[in-house]
């Protein structure tokens, strides 16, 4: 499946899960900031991606988990170097380069764009 084909299917998933228009779903659009996703929508997106692409997504595989609660990983609202390393190791489909200059916990959700989902699916199908 080409990247464009993956994007097409991801777009269908997001139009359905977030009730947005097709032309809003561009690779650079942030799920939270631009498309208005809320926490439960992430679960919805995971379920729908599984259905559409026919693979199983483990908890914490696509979106981060168990980072915010760990004092080793988060201090005063900032993700520590250990935390950044853990996120990078767990979520290879996410581009952390701009964010890690000022790794605020509150902005982690904004890192997830339509392109992130396409990266994730591409890696998952390529495995």
């Amino acid at each position: 499946m080409t990247r464009d084909e993956i994007l097409g299917k991801v777009r269908t998933v997001l139009v359905d899960a977030l009730a947005v228009d097709e032309d809003e779903v561009t690779p650079g659009a942030s799920l939270v900031r631009d498309l208005g996703a809320e926490s439960i929508d992430f679960l919805d997106i995971v379920f729908k991606l599984e259905q559409v692409f026919g693979f199983k997504i483990q908890q914490g595989e696509l979106f981060p988990e168990n980072v915010a609660q760990d004092p080793k990983y988060v201090q005063n609202g900032k993700v520590t170097p250990d935390g950044v390393a853990a996120l990078k190791a767990r979520l290879p489909h996410v581009d952390f380069s701009a964010w890690e200059k000022d790794p605020s916990l509150g902005k982690v959700a904004e890192l997830f764009t339509v392109g992130t989902l396409v990266n994730f699916v591409e890696k998952k199908l390529g495995r």
């Binding site: 926490s39 439960i40 679960l43 979106f63 988990e65 168990n66 915010a68 609660q69 916990l105 959700a109």
Partner: peptide
């Protein structure tokens, strides 16, 4: 519809 198991979702995603 979607249901959430609230107990497993509180504390994650920066809501600690």
């Amino acid at each position: 519809m979607m249901f959430s198991h609230l107990d497993n979702n509180m504390g994650g995603g920066g809501q600690a």
